[in-house]
Design a protein around this nucleic acid. Structure first.
Length: 701
RNA sequence: AGCGGGGUGGGGUAGCUAGGAAAUCCCGACGGGCUCAUAACCCGUAGAUCGAUGGUUCAAAUCCAUUCCCCGCUACCA
């Protein structure tokens, strides 16, 4: 087995820090595969780099009053450092602002032109005479022709949702400076992808081993035809389009960035002093791309189309896209402060723990959820408790009792163990080949359990007591088993695995550790204390929901909304205004005097003109909404389980979701989750209830 | 609204593409074992109408239809 393998990870955009969603989306999978491929003896070229052109960067630069170059410089350096901080080392980490990249792109562009895949076409585009530039659709504002909303955007009207064409807007204006926009004719170069539609479809259809999410999604996408795409833009920050009459135009960032994989590989080869190395590597035909699902179109359709058109480079063997990683059930969002950047999370956990946890929740087939609590649980119980402790217990036992591990024929226990490990290894390798990394980890975990179990059953401590000389063979077999586990976890937790190897052998892990497994080796163990440490994360447990019983003293229809009610609610000491969307389900006269449960410390929010100073809770099922209620006096505090309200300040709707409010299985009582427990709510010791039986587990809002 | 993903024991999940005897794993609860180890590890028990309804089938968590709910995306930005 000695194949040439090229592994490419989607180029991160150089306009902000990388968060753990990016890592789980593309880079960790790429690195796991990279390490795996090297481990089994293949030659690997592992490439990535910064995507540094494009409008968002130039706009950001304008805002921050710096040059695009400065922004790009900063994040290029930062990204590379971040990758290395979690043991992701590319052979080459390039950048698209590199002149050698531009040169490559321009050559590629000319090649396509020669072979008839490019065509100049006229387009009408919005233009701001004041700014002196063409405007992307969303930078055109005007009056919506359908609803009359005056601030509709050129792409879509926020008010009525209609998708617009900038030319449809009445009184179109430049969104940047506000001056009236004009429409001018402009030339753009189109990539004639439609010519390749049949070939792309056929090619995709043949990729049966690809993940469902990539193959079906792509096929689905070109169902309506593969359209020719404009690959030039009227912007300043990009690679110039090398075509007559196209002066000042830049090549569309995506078109250009996708060529980074090749141009970076070429640059890498040149720096290596072996200028054809990259072509040589690509000629193996094993090219793998790792990316997030938002990049599927570009890698599974556009890139292969470009390669087909040029005819020079092999098509991907595999395009592997992960879904999204969420944080506590929500999308990672820097602006809303949801989730962690890599640099921030590394202040809380070490890289091995992070890689281990992320590996075990890689969003391979559907979105997955990152939570600190789960990370702590998994890392402490699996990586530490099961694996780390196994290493530690065997080594410290052997050393403590002065046993020198020596190979010897084993008994039934040993041969069962060995057979189990052999089987494990082959299914592990199969999973890795198929890029099923989560499965590989879960197989590994099973194997770890079986070795712990073996060690328990083997009871070497009894053998020591009985002066059984076979104990040294027993320890040898145990160490061999640990070796298996260590080698197989290496692609996921490289630093940790190397530390374990060191304590088994006192030397660095060899380049081809898999081969070593078959050898009757000698061990030279060193007890350096636990290789992994448990992580400490303070749990965010507690009740930060300030719930009270309230009594509706006034209910009226909301003057400006169809489905909302305006309520005044007595909370015992004060009366607040609430806006609630239950108009469809309750009559006004039934509501007055009714006791309800109110979230008192929710951020106030103006809803269609009336400020809602809290939120009432109701269970919602297919038939409608049903209020939570209690017979206790208004103002009575509502507890979740034993938890009293212990928070401070206002909470947001997003915070509320953490409690996962739901009706119980019978649909009679509301429940909320605090920590790991689903708990009932009580007021004065009596359960809060739902005013009418609902479907079990109905959501409460 | 459109597109995409999902609803599986108390919490988190696997399984669904190729339907099949007891539904996986982690945490938690309960009981036991062990004492080498990081209060760790190992074994066992309880706990799931696999969102709902209907259909196909000898057989459905898995396929089809309908429906309810949740989440994400919906910038010719990249």
């Amino acid at each position: 087995m000695n194949r040439k393998v090229v592994i490419n990870c989607a180029l991160p955009y150089a306009n902000g820090p990388l968060h753990i969603g990016h890592i789980a989306g593309a880079y960790l999978s790429g690195d796991i595969f990279n390490r795996y491929q090297r481990m089994i003896g293949n030659e690997v070229m592992f490439i990535c780099g910064s995507d540094e052109y494009g409008t968002p960067i130039s706009i950001q630069a304008e805002k921050e009053k710096v040059s695009p170059k400065e922004i790009v410089e900063k994040y290029h350096r930062e990204h590379r450092k971040t990758m290395e901080s979690i043991d992701i080392f590319f052979d080459y980490f390039g950048r698209t602002t590199d002149p050698e990249h531009s040169e490559f792109v321009e050559d590629f562009f000319r090649d396509l032109e020669k072979s008839g895949y490019l065509e100049k076409r006229k387009m009408i585009s919005a233009y701001c005479p004041n700014e002196g530039r063409f405007l992307p659709d969303r930078y055109v504002n005007g009056t919506c022709p359908r609803c009359g909303y005056e601030n509709a955007r050129g792409d879509q009207c926020d008010e009525c949702g209609r998708t617009n064409d900038p030319q449809d807007l009445i009184n179109p204006r430049c969104a940047i400076c506000g001056s009236p926009a004009e429409f001018r004719e402009t030339d753009h170069v189109f990539f004639l992808a439609s010519k390749l539609e049949g070939r792309i479809r056929e090619w995709l259809e043949g990729k049966k081993e690809w993940r469902e999410n990539v193959r079906s999604f792509s096929l689905n996408m070109i169902q309506g035809g593969l359209k020719d795409r404009a690959i030039t833009r009227d912007i300043d920050w990009g690679v110039p389009a090398p075509m007559e009459g196209m002066e000042g135009k830049r090549i569309y960032v995506w078109f250009e960035a996708l060529l980074g994989y090749l141009s970076f590989a070429r640059k890498y080869s040149r720096e290596k002093g072996e200028s054809d190395y990259w072509l040589n590597m690509y000629s193996g035909g094993h090219t793998f791309y790792f990316l997030g699902k938002d990049n599927i179109f570009f890698h599974a359709i556009l890139l292969p189309a470009m390669h087909m058109a040029s005819g020079k480079y092999p098509l991907p063997e595999r395009v592997d896209a992960n879904e999204y990683l969420r944080f506590n059930g929500q999308k990672f969002s820097k602006s809303r402060g949801i989730g962690y950047s890599v640099d921030d999370i590394l202040k809380i956990v070490d890289k091995d723990s992070l890689r281990f946890y992320l590996s075990s929740i890689l969003p391979e087939s559907s979105d997955s959820d990152f939570t600190l609590n789960e990370m702590k649980e998994k890392v402490n119980s699996e990586l530490n408790g099961k694996y780390g402790n196994l290493v530690n217990r065997v080594i410290s036992f052997a050393e403590g009792k002065g046993i020198h591990p020596e190979y010897g024929e084993g008994d039934d226990l040993d041969s069962t163990l060995e057979a189990g490990l052999t089987k494990f290894l082959s299914s592990y390798l199969e999973a890795m080949e198929r890029l099923e990394f989560r499965r590989a980890i879960s197989l590994w975990l099973e194997a770890v359990k079986s070795v712990n179990s073996y060690f328990n059953d083997a009871k070497p401590w009894d053998m020591v007591k009985n002066h059984d000389p076979k104990v040294s063979a027993r320890i040898w077999h145990s160490l061999k088993a640990i070796e298996y586990l260590t080698v197989t976890i290496y692609p996921f937790v490289p630093s940790g695995a190397e530390r374990v190897w060191d304590s088994l052998h006192g030397v660095n892990m060899p380049d081809l550790p898999l081969k070593h497994l078959e050898e009757v080796c000698t061990f030279s163990i060193r007890n350096t204390g636990p290789v992994f440490k448990k992580i400490e994360i303070e749990e965010e447990e507690g009740n930060e929901l300030n719930l009270v019983v309230g009594k509706i003293i006034m209910a009226e229809n909301h003057p400006n909304a169809d489905s909302l009610l305006h309520l005044k609610v007595d909370l015992g000491f004060n009366v607040i205004d609430l806006v609630a969307g239950i108009k469809k389900y309750y009559d006004l006269k039934d509501l007055e005097g009714k006791k309800i449960i109110v979230v008192k410390n929710l951020k106030h929010s103006k809803i269609r003109g009336i400020e809602s100073q809290g939120m009432l809770l109701a269970a919602q099922d297919s038939r409608g909404a049903h209020l939570l209620t209690s017979d206790e006096k208004e103002g009575t505090e509502v507890l979740i389980g034993e938890h009293r309200y212990s928070g401070e300040g206002k909470i947001s709707i997003d915070d509320l979701k953490r409690y996962d409010l739901k009706a119980d299985n019978e649909g009679l009582y509301p429940t909320a989750v605090i920590g790991r427990d689903r708990l009932y709510m009580t007021a004065n010791g009596k359960r809060v209830y739902i005013d009418e039986k609902v479907e079990g587990k109905s959501q409460i809002r």
